[in-house]
């Protein structure tokens, strides 16, 4: 149970970063850390004590494998995470080009 708690602490650090920081790049960093924690949580629930990787071998009878379903879900989620990160970076660079800053409070002042 402690390992789940450490994973949640990692998620909470990312959440705190998203809530508290004002730099857009820092917010993207927080989102990335939260995403890592979510992926880690899925893989943790799939682990089995003394299990083997879900790949068959020739001539070996495998009895205890880890759960392959969360692996498949996380595999797609990682690539989607990269694409959404690139989208966020593109938006951030457009904001920098328009306002000359990454600080979200300054951006609000300029807009008002």
């Amino acid at each position: 149970m402690i390992i789940y708690f450490l994973c949640l602490v990692l998620f909470a650090i990312g959440l705190y970063c998203v809530l508290r920081k004002r730099n857009i790049i820092k917010i993207i960093v927080g989102i990335i850390i939260s995403e890592y924690a979510a992926n880690l949580f899925f893989i943790l629930t799939a682990y089995r004590i003394g299990g083997r990787a879900p790949i068959f071998q020739e001539g070996v009878d495998i009895t205890n494998m880890v759960d392959p379903l969360p692996h498949a879900l996380v595999l797609t989620a990682i690539v989607i995470g990269l694409a959404t990160t690139a989208l966020l970076v593109a938006i951030a660079m457009r904001i920098y080009e328009k306002y000359g800053t990454f600080d979200i409070t300054k951006i609000r002042e300029l807009n008002g």
Binding site: N39, A46, Y47, V66, H71, V79, G81, L82, T85
Partner: peptide, 22 residues
């Protein structure tokens, strides 16, 4: 360590590309 080699390979290469973009 958690016996997920596919996810480990994907995470490694995606991490490198994300780092370059950032």
């Amino acid at each position: 360590i958690l016996k997920a080699p596919d996810v480990a390979i994907t995470q490694l290469v995606v991490e490198i590309l994300a780092l370059i973009i950032l």
